[in-house]
Each structure stands twice: as structure tokens, then as C-alpha cells.
Design a protein around this nucleic acid. Sequence first.
DNA 1: AAAGCGAAATAAAACGATTTAGTATGTAAA
DNA 2: TTTACATACTAAATCGTTTTATTTCGCTTT
Lengths: 334, 334
Amino acid sequence: MKSLSIKDIAVKANVSITTVSFIINGKAKEKSISEAVIEKVKKIIEESGYKPNQIARSLRTGNSNIIGLIIEDISNSFFSRIARLIEDKAYKRGYKIIYSSTENNIDKAKELINLFKSRKVDAYIISPIKGIEEDVQMLLDDGNPVIFFDRNLPNVETSYVGADHFNASYQSIQSFIDQGKKNIALVTTDINVAQITERHDGYKKALEDNGIKYDDNLVLKIHFNQEENETIEQIKALFENKKIDAVLFATNYLAISGLKALKQIDKKIGGDFAVIAYDDHEAFELHTPRISAIQQPLEEIAEAIIKLILNRLSSKGKLPAEELIIPTRLVLRN
Amino acid sequence: MKSLSIKDIAVKANVSITTVSFIINGKAKEKSISEAVIEKVKKIIEESGYKPNQIARSLRTGNSNIIGLIIEDISNSFFSRIARLIEDKAYKRGYKIIYSSTENNIDKAKELINLFKSRKVDAYIISPIKGIEEDVQMLLDDGNPVIFFDRNLPNVETSYVGADHFNASYQSIQSFIDQGKKNIALVTTDINVAQITERHDGYKKALEDNGIKYDDNLVLKIHFNQEENETIEQIKALFENKKIDAVLFATNYLAISGLKALKQIDKKIGGDFAVIAYDDHEAFELHTPRISAIQQPLEEIAEAIIKLILNRLSSKGKLPAEELIIPTRLVLRN
DNA sequence: AAAGCGAAATAAAACGATTTAGTATGTAAA
DNA sequence: TTTACATACTAAATCGTTTTATTTCGCTTT
């Protein structure tokens, strides 16, 4: 069964397509359509269950009411939660979200941008990776709103919403030091993005400010796409070979692997060994003992992203790039 | 800057739009376009970076190469993992996924179906809830492929992929009984979907088959949309007021809440008190002691869904509805 | 009665692709 | 020489909307 078109409605109501279109789009008054006709047409639309074809509409108007969301991995709880919040908020304002995961693969990220471009999404929300600067710049040059979140690309001038990774990391290390820890390790990833280097820098700075010498041997960089088992082995090696009394995990999935590693070598978390994880996770509250974590205010981040996007969409001219750095919360669980 | 259209390419190459279209769509040979022209046009497309406007293409061909995925909640790890797998597999076959969460809200689910319909998605993958039968039936009547997963709606005849919830539940209870447990509780939700009632039925049947009387007081039905704190209080009440030596949690988020509750009342999991959770979760492996869980084979489920969808998309005629019941795996962690 | 004007409605172009039904040309078969 | 047919290519219709420009009509005004 073919679905109804505006033409079918026009025929049924015995008016022109134009008239129906004006009524659908709330321009009836403005275009001085008579009350009687408005009523008649609305009734027919109601009864027939007609819904305008969004594809035709998009083709004509050039916008899709779709926002593209490009993230690292939808199955990571940080991203899936943010996605859910963004989806909710966008939905309430009449926008749909399409999301897709890059898996930190530059080619896939580029492909996704092209795909979204050919689908004429109205705006892009991207958690970017290095190597896509040019592609993003092209989007911007074409006048598309683009918001980065979680991570930033220094050479691209567009708005950014993210947590204060540097300070979050700094404070965690400071709290270790306040507890009297001296040999503080950092387990991080080797992906080259601002958010990760900021976390690394905060670690360094906190040590230096407290007169502790930075030791590269206490920093473990895990390769992004490797098997979890290998990660666990590397973390075990770190703890077995070095004297360490505190560790900051730079992402929640690293922390999960780390906890597994600690369990395997039976290293207890407690008085003389402390752990903090970046990004909270359900497992941390439940763990015995409970694991301290840096919480990013997801709700605030999502809200900020949507606000920026909608501002850009509603204003014709280009707005200056804004940077929103949102403070994190260190939840110490002991 | 306006993006290029097929017309621009045609002008540049000094051929007709038709010719360009044939070449883009790989019909050049079939339509006997000369090798020289093919080369020339391809070169121009390459150099200019032209990408066909998918919206125009969709309008004309009537299909979008988009599959709509309607789930309960993308931030639930079961769904986000499935989503990721489906996305991956679909992507490799040239399909995009748009997903959206219903939050178990009938109106939102209906709205989503309409939204996807007006966007002309090629197929629907739905984890359905009661109350949307008519809407789905309309989709089917219009010839749209619809696949249910995780849950089924008995009165709608369409393909379904899901785990063997009844047996999973049955086996869990049987394993409790084999360990000598007698007072076995079930913590489940009050949402009225097949998958949840099947889990309940499996619980009942296993008890009966072992000569244990079913006791409604040992079954706690948690209201779906309530605050987690309330859930925890209810679970605490259950354990404090009844003599219970084993419990099956019917979803992973209930298990998470349950573990929190057990921690609060300091009830230890071990020899004389056993726990199994439906759907595995990272927290369970890490928990002390480790928590047993029923694993659904996500990869298999995703693969089955995609296969069914693609079959339906490639065959013109309607195929008979298929039901794929996939066995689960009970992982006992002690 | 002609001109002017506002109200009410519409015809037709446009968006950017696909596809049907051609046309023009050269060559082989009758 | 005509017919047939393959080759190489294209004009124009079409998908379902939005939107610009235009028409039609009745009513005032001069």
C-alpha cells in the first residue's frame, strides 16, 4: 500500500497542493487561507493519518532535522549515557540523532563524516580524533555547525564542551599525595588526543608541584585496540616490577582491566595502596572495597552541547567558537 | 559553498546527467557507455570529491539504506552492545542504523515508529513493548521488514530473534536446587513483556519439577521507572523479611541494585546464599565474590538479526516469519 | 465604469537524483 | 537498397515537498 502524499490530501479536500502545504507548515494565517478551508484540510489530514514525507521535505528545504553524533564507541558507558541524554534533549526540540562509532579509526571517522554529509545532517557533534582536522574544517567552511566534546582538536576552531581533564587529574594525584603516597602510577592509553594528554599533564604537574620527580617508568600507555588480556598482563607486570602505592587509571575501561589485574596478582586496595578511576562506572560503587572515581557531569555536558548546537542552528551568521570547560567531581570512596 | 550536484559533474564532463548517473550506479557496462567516457567521468568525480545527495536518491528510489533500531534504553549495556554489533554488521553491508530509546513508554514507541516511517527507513529492528501491536501491524501491512528481538509480541506475526529465556531461567533455578537451595527468590520487573514472563515461567516450572511449592511472596516485581533507591529499599525488605538462600535477578540492572542492597544489609554471598544475574555485566566478574550470570550470545543475536533483515530486503515477496531462539550460557562463578 | 486593492487560492519551478523511453549512428544481414 | 540491430548517448518524467510568482474575484474608491 502506497502511503499518502500531499497531493492525495489536496485532491480529497478539493484544494491545491500549495494550500495544504501552507496549512501543514502553520503558514495558513500568514498566507490568508480562510478558516473554513483550514478546518477542512486539517480534518482530512487527521482522519487519513497523513504524515509528510521527510525525505522530500529535506530535499526541498535542505535541512534534515537530524544531528549526527560521532563517538568512539557506543558500547562504552560514558558514551552511551551521553548519547542517551543528548538524544533525549534533541528529541524534545524536534531533532533526531544518528550516531555511529569510529573505534578510533581515522578512516572510519572520515567515512562517517562523508556519510553524514551526504545525508545532509543539520549539525555534527563529534568526539574527535587526530587526523580528521581537514574533514572537519571542510564542514565548517561549508557553514555546518560542529561541536566537539570530550576531546578537542587544537588546530580546528570550533566550539568545544568538555570536562576539566587537567584539573581532575591534578586533584586526584594531589589527593594521593595528601594521603602520603609517593610512588604514583598512571595507566593511560596511547591514543593521541587532547583529553588524554591533559590527564597526563595534570598528573605530571601535581607531582612536580609537590616536589616528586616524574618517572616515566610509572606511566603505562596501553595500546588502544588491543585485546583485554594483553592489557591485563601489562598492568600486572607494572605492579609486579615497580614499587607503587597509588594508581590513577585514565579511562574507566582501563580501570576495569586494572581491577581484574590486581585481583589476579592479589594486590589489595586499601590503606597502603590507593586507586582512582577516570569516569565513574557501576562496578566501582559495588567493588570491594569501593573504588574512588572522577565523575564527569554527564547531564551538564549533554545540555551544554545541545544548547550550543541549537544556538548555531537558529542564528544565521557564524557565531564565535566557545569553549566550555566543565569541572569534574572527585568521589573518594573509602 | 554549495555542494556539487550530478549536474555539475555532467557539465564538467560534457555529457548528460543520465550518463553520469549510469556510471555512478555501475550500470555503465549494461547501458553500453564507452570506456573513454567512463574514465573521464570517473576522473572528474574523483577529483571534485563529488558525493551523491542521498536524500534525493532516497526520494527517487524510495529506499534510504537506513535501518531503524528501536530499543528500551541505549544506556543499558545489553542494548548498547547489541547496538554496536548491529551497527558494525549493517555498516559493512552498506546500511546505516538510526537508533532511539523508548524508555518503555508506549507513546514514545509509537512516535518513533512514525518518525522512522516518515524518514522511510528500509527496515525496523524493534525490542517491542505491549501496546504497539497495531502500529507494527501497519508497518507489516505496508510491506516493511520488521524484526523483533529480545522480546516478542505474541499477536504480531513477524520474525523474532531472542534468547531462550525460559530455559535460561529454568537452568539457573535447577542449579540452585542442585546446590541444595530451597528458598529461592526471584527479583523481576513489572513490565509486561514476553521475555520477562518467560523468565518468570522458567522459575516456576523448575520449582514445580523439583517438588518445591511456588511462593508468590518470594517474587518481587519492581516497577520499571522507579528511582534506584526505592528499588534497593524493596530488595532489602525482601531479604530482611523472608528466609532466602538463593536469588535470581531477572535483569542486570536489577542485579546491580540487588548487590547494592545486599551490601547495605551486609548479607554475604557464598556457601549458604547464592546469586545469579540475568545478562552478564562487567561488575559481576569483578565483584567479590564473583557473581554468576546468564550470558546471552550477543554476537550471534546481532548476526541473526542482520541476516533476517537482509534476506527480507533482498527478496521481493514476503517471507514467512521465522523464530530464532538462541541458547544462553550459564556462567557459574564461585 | 475603470482602477485599485486585499483576500483567497493556485500554477509551476525547484531541490538532486533515477529511470523510461527515446534518438542518432554505424554495420551486418536480407 | 532496405531492414535490423547493436552501440553510445540523452531528454524528460518522476519522487513529494516548499516556495515564488501569479491569478481570480469581489469590493471600494474615484
